[in-house]
Amino acid sequence: MIPDDLPLWLSLLVGICVLAGAFLTLVGSIGLARLSSFYERIHAPTLGSSLGTGFILLGSVLYFSVTGQRLSVHEVLIFIFVSVTTPVTLMLLARAALYRDREEGAGEVPPSRFGRDDG
């Protein structure tokens, strides 16, 4: 539970961080729902996975460091993990989507360049 004798600056700082992170994540998810093609939508989740996660975890680190309830190892680990894995999953999915689109001959996708060396 939140202690009553919390300093005002801390609650404001943590609140702003968490709100900013949640807002960016929300915007990213709205983008996911609103943007019109797959390759545009792939940009939307990075909003939540970069600054959204960063702000929320920063708020959490600040809160637990100042109140001294626990050591914030988990936040650091989660941040490292999310920032490394999200690009990897997005790249894999993008390549899968390219492969599938080429297979079906869908328009607007550039052709594969493998096996050509004309630069």
């Binding site: 490394v84 999200t86 690009p87 997005l90 790249m91 993008a94 493998f114 050509r116 630069g119």
Partner: peptide
Amino acid sequence: SCIVTATPGSAWLEYDPVGSTVLVH
């Protein structure tokens, strides 16, 4: 590739080792 994909607005799609080019969206 991680930097390009992690920054919103650009995504690394496919690297071609022969021609040393990359497809970015």
